[in-house]
Design a protein around this nucleic acid. Structure first.
Lengths: 196, 196
DNA sequence: ATATTACCAGACTGATCGGTATACTCAGTA
DNA sequence: TACTGAGTATACCGATCAGTCTGGTAATAT
């Protein structure tokens, strides 16, 4: 219980993941060397290789952490009492604000797939991420995961992320939001107040 | 005229750009070292630095080449006699086929922005590319470049590219195509045969 | 008390990177 | 003929990378 005097407050592993989370996401994976991750974490180099087999394993753990983060964030942004169109647009609006604040660095999974195109483990996590997004969007509009409407929302979310990352265009992100809202309204015309 | 016996058929610069075109696009920019570009081009290393200041300059030249290629391809895919919806969908269909053949390696500009996030020159070419896409789509549907309809087509094209690169999902690309066609039809209802 | 476990500090290795330097060939030209 | 310009081949440089190794510290468990 009270083992918090000299024993690390948080484990070396947790500090490494936090460090990797910042550096990989903000400066890219390839541009971030192991030494920087270690120094930034305030941890010994050996501790990295005690907890992770190699850099690739650290990258995968980072992506899994980002996936958990996305889910947490999606639920934090969601107000189940709002109409469906607003529950959807909240996701896009967060993206648009991030663009305006210059704090958007891209989708970690898209970035990783592009930075490490030959890494199967990365593709696997990216696939899981896309399935999670699809499931979440399906839940928000109360539709089947395989429905056309959900596919279209996935596409609009993909579009918004590219518009944010490459175009840095908040207005375009909001246009995607409008499209998503129109889609939800068309899919569920008798829904102007409640989502359940 | 007849100076083609020992004088290089094509210049070292052209061979380097062709080599860079293949390697950067298929394996990524950071993963492709200078030595490989040079060896693959069958050219001396000094020839690279005689024609380009550094790797970054080569990358920018490669992107400009890709931009020209995109324009050429877009015109090759376009049949001005087809209805507008088909002129649009041809773009998406080419993408879907590329996914099915496993020959799609992503948008060179998006890839470059993600691989070299701190490079201003890369961002500049990417911005030009997006303007070119917007202009082309506007011409295809005969709308103003700044119109909402064109913004929406840009978004759908962005979406299709992400669906292709990260999702590797040809069906999703075709769903984007359907959305684009519906958008064109709605924007121009009295257009079922001719585009002019 | 001792063995174990988790950690830190940092030197070190081998490979690879972008880029430079040296020395040469050869075709066209003034 | 002698110079120039574009090319080739290859050795080399300093930096950086991922990953290993040595050696030490301190708390925990036996």
């Amino acid at each position: 219980m009270h083992s918090s005097t000299i024993t690390p407050i948080v484990s070396a592993k947790a500090r490494l993941l936090a460090s990797a989370g910042h550096l990989f996401h903000e400066h890219g994976i390839n541009a971030t060397g192991i030494d920087l991750v270690v120094r930034n974490a305030g941890v010994a180099k050996a501790s990295l290789y005690n907890n992770f087999a190699n850099k690739e394993a650290l990258v995968v753990a980072y992506l899994e952490q980002e996936l958990d983060g996305w889910i947490g964030n999606a639920h934090a942004l969601d107000n189940p009492l709002s109409p469906r169109r607003e529950r959807i647009s909240a996701l896009f609006e967060a993206l648009a604000r991030s663009v305006e604040l210059n704090t958007f660095h891209g989708c970690p999974f898209t970035n990783a797939v592009i930075e490490l195109p030959e890494c199967a483990a990365v593709r696997t996590v990216a696939k899981r991420y896309r399935a999670v997004v699809r499931t979440h969007l399906a839940n928000l509009i109360g539709a089947d995961t395989t429905s056309t409407a959900v596919s279209r929302l996935v596409l609009l979310y993909d579009a918004a992320i590219t518009a944010a990352k490459v175009g840095r265009d908040a207005a375009l992100v909001r246009e995607a939001s409008t499209m998503a809202q129109e889609l939800v309204d068309a899919h569920n015309p008798d829904d102007s107040q409640q989502s359940r």
